[in-house]
Structure formats: C-alpha cells, structure tokens
Simulated assay, not measured.
Amino acid sequence: MAESAQYEELVRQFSAFGAVKREMNRLMPSDCPSGSAAVLTVLGRDGDMRMSRLAELLSVDMSVTSRHVAHLAERGWIERSPDPADKRSRILRLTPAGRTRLDELFRLTTQLLAERLCDWSDEEVGRLTQLMARLRSSFGDPRTVPRQAPSALEPTTRTPAST
C-alpha cells in the first residue's frame, strides 16, 4: 500500500488535473458545453437509453440530465421517443446530426491531446490510459456497477481539493 505522502501528492495532482479539464472544456463549441458533450459521448458509446440510466452513467441529478437533454434535443442532436415498455418514459438516441457533432468533438479533443502529449511515447500514453481506467474502476465505474447513494448515517468527508 502506498505511503500517506503519495496519496497527498495524488490529491494535489487531481487538483492540478482540473486545469487540463478546463482547457479541454474551453475548446468545446459555444453551442455544446461540456455537460452536453458528455451526454453525446455516453449515447455514442452506450447507445439508446432512458434518461434515468443516462443520469446514472453521468453521475448527476436527473434535473441536470434533463437540462442537457433538452439543450441537445433543441439542436436536433438527439431525439426522445416513447419507451415501448413504459409510455411515461423516453428513450434517448443520437440523431445523424448528433453523431456528426460527436465526431467533431472527438476530433477536437483528440487533436488537443495529440498536441499537448506530442513528446510522450506511445507506451506512456497507453500506460496513462490504463491507469485512468483502473482508477475509474476502483471508484466503481457506473457503466458496470449501479451507483448507490451513501447512507444518511454515514459521515461524508471532503477535503479542500475535492470541493
């Protein structure tokens, strides 16, 4: 198990990683903020789904998901259809225009990463990818594990770096 100092440095690196995410978000087109891009990404990766599943995969509240979905539907990038199994629910799916927009977003972010990591070896980029996937798995990847709300009796702790 790692030393306490290593975990402290990891917390500092997570805080610094926010700058990387902000730069990636800045290159998003003004009509597609990062939350909307995340919805497109999940639908592109996982296919058609109910809004409740989308909220779970994004790890955000249903009201936040609903706002992003409305934004994308207004632009014609996703469509909402009645769920045949439950007419009260909607199935979300990418439209061809949404697929085109998603492809553009991937091109932009891939280009940024290629520019910033141009002095990294293929092995280093692969290792970072593996470690990030493992980290996500250690925290319970919502794509494979249903997210459970913390018990009201369990204390929650926040460090300044995580708020």
Rank of each mutant, 00 (worst) to 15 (best):
P82W: 09
P82D: 05
D83T: 06
D83L: 06
D83R: 07
D83F: 10
P84I: 03
P84C: 04
A85V: 04
D86T: 00
K87N: 00
K87F: 00
R88G: 08
R88C: 03
S89I: 00
S89G: 02
S89V: 00
I91C: 05
I91G: 02
I91T: 11
I91W: 08
R93I: 09
R93W: 14
R93F: 10
R93Y: 11
T95K: 01
A97S: 12
G98Q: 04
G98M: 04
G98E: 00
T100S: 12
R101H: 04
L102N: 05
L102P: 02
L102I: 08
D103W: 08
D103M: 12
D103F: 11
D103E: 14
D103N: 15
D103H: 14
D103V: 13
L105R: 02
L105I: 07
L105C: 05
L105F: 01
F106G: 13
R107K: 10
L108F: 03
T109L: 07
T109D: 02
T110R: 08
T110W: 00
Q111S: 15
L112G: 03
L112Q: 15
L113W: 02
L113H: 08
L113I: 12
L113M: 11
L113C: 10
A114H: 13
A114D: 15
E115R: 06
E115M: 03
R116T: 11
R116P: 02
R116Q: 15
L117S: 12
L117K: 02
C118F: 13
C118Y: 12
C118V: 15
D119A: 11
D119G: 01
W120L: 01
W120K: 03
W120M: 03
W120Q: 06
W120P: 05
S121Q: 07
S121D: 12
D122V: 09
E123S: 11
E124G: 05
E124S: 08
E124D: 08
V125L: 10
V125S: 07
V125R: 11
G126A: 05
L128W: 11
L128K: 09
L128Y: 08
T129Q: 11
Q130L: 14
Q130P: 04
Q130M: 10
M132C: 10
M132W: 11
M132N: 08
